[in-house]
Write a protein that binds this DNA or RNA. Structure first.
Length: 381
DNA sequence: ACTGTCTGCCCC
DNA sequence: ATTCTGC
DNA sequence: GCAGAATGGGCAGACAGT
């Protein structure tokens, strides 16, 4: 509903939507359900219900009909911002007043926006095309701008207010997370080596949580894979970054795992008892200690490193950290036997397998390409 | 205070 | 995260 | 081959209800 970096959420799902819809029409639940069952998704179901059944009269201060985009958006913001005792009822009341004013078609769009469906056939790829065409920009430039800003809306704003030059000058902002680069799978190290052109970086694949760490002027903020801020859940990791990073400004990436006193990784579920906690007690901090293993560097000082080859980013990463900070165990090799031995070691130490990465590849936010490959232990029954 | 239910662009 | 499907 | 949609298991937070 909101941009990925926006921490707000509606906390409304299909169940609440459904209660509201039932309360808005003059029919028994069974009839409503029957009509709704013909819809292809929840929004379509609501559209059909509103088209078919008589709506209850809704007492409202606003007599005028016709919703504007601004009204819908600010109403959704109000729903997101309602919290504390009675907030559930308030969210429901706000949604009811919104849907009571919506035409069937408008209700369809609003409901699908709320529950996270589009079904418009409008993927981000098409959105990029549309921005490029609307502002007369090359597709590649729009693509790049969406990637580094992580937010199509920011690109549109730049194009509309500053023109092509503003779009071209978009760069990552510290404390605004980028979408993480993603990996494809490979069966084994040999396949990975042939995909990556004979030589590659092999790294332990740790069974933890991906994090992106932003640092500026002594402040540290950490984001999860889905760009949720998790800074306050992992004060031990934040402290390690403050102690170990020798740069006033940076964006780093790594994997956070729970590590036992014996140095072996604790199960993923144990990590999850820490990772998304709002408050971490001293007892929990001690019982489940976290450690981050870094593997990438996207921004260092004033330099954006996204287009630099992985080998160079890794070299700069190595030179930028010290103290308690660690880099994920890595070897660079073209020898399959050496890589297989490394894989065996990773598994023996309790890890998930290996990542294989193209040393010449840039960092491509949000792209699941073949420059990063994950190799897991073959599944046995 | 305790338990139940719902929610999460949740984490994997 | 994995698996499936349609282009 | 790619991207998008659909799906699973498990967990903490937050509110509702008692």
């Amino acid at each position: 509903m909101f941009p990925a970096w926006d921490e707000r959420s509606l906390d409304v799902s299909w169940m609440t939507v459904w209660r509201v819809v039932e309360s808005l029409v003059e029919a028994d639940p069974a009839t409503v359900r029957k009509i709704a069952s013909e819809g292809v998704d929840l929004g379509d179901a609501v559209r059909r219900v509103f088209e078919t059944l008589k709506r209850r009269r809704q007492a409202t201060l606003f007599e005028e009909d016709g919703l504007t985009l601004e009204e819908v958006y600010s109403q959704l913001e109000a729903i997101a911002e309602a919290k504390g005792p009675g907030s559930r009822a308030k969210k429901e009341a706000l949604l009811r007043s919104l849907l009571s004013r919506a035409s069937p078609l408008e209700a369809w769009l609003i409901v699908n926006a709320i529950v996270g469906e589009t079904r418009l056939g409008l993927s981000e790829g098409l959105l990029v095309d549309a921005i490029a065409e609307a502002y007369g920009l090359p597709r590649s430039e729009v693509e790049r701008a969406v990637m580094v800003s992580g937010d199509p809306a920011a690109v549109i704003e730049a194009a509309a207010t500053g023109g092509p030059a503003a779009v071209r000058s978009l760069r990552p902002q510290i404390f605004r997370p980028l979408r993480p680069m993603l990996a494809q799978t490979a069966e084994d190290v040999r396949e990975a080596l042939s995909e990556l052109g004979g030589t590659a970086a092999f790294e332990y694949k740790l069974d933890g949580a991906r994090v992106q760490i932003h640092v500026k002027g002594g402040d540290v903020r950490v984001f999860s894979r889905r760009l949720t801020e998790v800074t306050h859940s992992i004060p031990d990791v934040v402290q390690a970054v403050k102690e170990g990073l020798e740069a006033d400004q940076a964006i780093l990436e790594g994997e956070v795992i729970a590590e036992g006193a014996d140095g072996r990784p604790m199960p993923f579920q144990v990590l999850m008892r820490r990772f998304r906690r709002v408050r971490v007690s001293p007892e929990l901090l001690e019982a489940i200690p976290l450690r981050v293993y870094l593997f990438d560097l996207l921004v260092l000082g004033d330099e954006v490193l996204l287009d630099k080859p992985y080998s160079e980013r890794r070299e700069l990463l190595k030179r930028s950290i010290g103290g308690p900070l660690r880099i994920v165990p890595t070897i660079v090799t073209g020898d399959p036997r050496e890589a297989e031995d490394f894989m065996e070691r990773a598994l023996a130490e309790g890890h998930e397998g290996l990542m294989a990465k193209n040393l010449r590849a840039p960092y491509t936010p949000g792209v699941r390409g073949k420059n990063w490959l994950k190799i897991k232990r073959a599944k046995t029954l």
